[in-house]
């Protein structure tokens, strides 16, 4: 696997991946080591950081570190659900549209346009109005973000696929009796796989950010703990104006790190696999 060893020579890639994996580890393993329930009331509200509560206590008397660790877990899950849905839809519909063309292509493109136009905020507001507050969990928010963010990527996959379809080796595959499905799975997907990876990283980051955005304005998460929900509570009780920094800074910092690390991974993938100028 010379591609992997090559990638690991890129400092940006290594740094991004290391930061991201550390955060993932915090979300997965953290709650097992720091065994404090994030929902229990553990002391007087707004207790500043202390040895027994390293990140202090929030507006509702809960431990902020426990909240943060569960929040990371929740946010990563939202990101994974949303990115998984969006990537699946965009890859499937984008390649199908390009390979089948004609009416199939036209219909898919119209649908993608509709979903590009609908913002996740609008859809979430409508759902928030009809669903009971308790139903707004990780899965629902992840689904809404995923379903509203695939449109642009589908167009991206479609255009990449169309350019690959011009190659001689696709004509060779057709002359070998390869079906359209086989062309998508065996010819196109392996070639665009770096782009798929990069797009997953980007979808992931934007989904995590989108969740925070939705939750902060009050139409997002209510049930499961995410970084967005921590910030929402902090914002609801006007912690910033009161100088209660420990409920705001840690989740923001984690957000920025997730964003930065995946951004580094995505751009180094893109730089590495984009056609390079070089000597033939």
């Amino acid at each position: 696997m010379s591609i992997l060893t090559d990638l690991f020579r890129i400092p940006k890639f290594v740094a991004g991946l290391a930061i991201f994996l550390t955060i993932v580890a915090l979300g997965l393993v953290g709650p097992l080591i720091y065994r404090v329930s994030p929902t229990d009331i553990v002391g007087p509200r707004y207790t500043p950081p202390s040895p027994s509560h390293p990140l202090g206590i929030d507006a509702l008397g809960r431990d902020v570190l426990a909240q943060l660790l569960y929040g990371i877990r929740g946010s990563l899950l939202v990101g994974a659900v949303a990115a998984g849905i969006a990537l699946g839809l965009s890859l499937f519909l984008g390649t199908i549209a390009a390979v089948f063309g004609g009416l199939v292509d036209k219909v898919i493109m119209v649908i993608s346009e509709v979903f590009i136009i609908i913002p996740s905020l609008l859809l979430m507001m409508v759902l928030a109005a009809y669903l009971s507050p308790g139903a707004r969990n990780i899965w629902l928010v992840g689904f809404v973000i995923g379903i509203t963010s695939w449109g642009g990527w589908a167009r991206g996959f479609r255009s990449r696929t169309m350019s690959i379809l011009q190659s001689e080796f696709i004509k060779m595959a057709i002359l070998s009796g390869a079906s359209r499905v086989s062309i998508i799975l065996r010819d196109i997907v392996p070639i665009i796989s770096p782009y798929i990876l990069a797009s997953f990283a980007m979808l992931f980051t934007s989904a995590i950010t989108a969740e925070v955005g939705l939750t902060i304005v009050g139409v997002g998460m209510t049930k499961d703990i995410t970084l967005g929900l921590i910030l929402y509570i902090a914002q609801l009780y006007a912690n910033i104006t009161q100088g209660i920094w420990w409920t705001v800074v840690p989740p923001t910092l984690v957000m920025i790190l997730i964003y930065l690390s995946l951004y580094l991974v995505a751009i180094s993938l893109d730089e590495y696999f984009s056609p390079k100028l070089g000597t033939a």
Binding site: S167, E168, F169, M172, A173, G177, R186, D187, I191
Partner: peptide
């Protein structure tokens, strides 16, 4: 350009 760069020669032949 007549060969998919991600395939092995065996894949290319077997496809026929």
């Amino acid at each position: 350009s007549s060969f998919n760069p991600t395939h092995r020669i065996r894949d290319f032949m077997y496809r026929a």
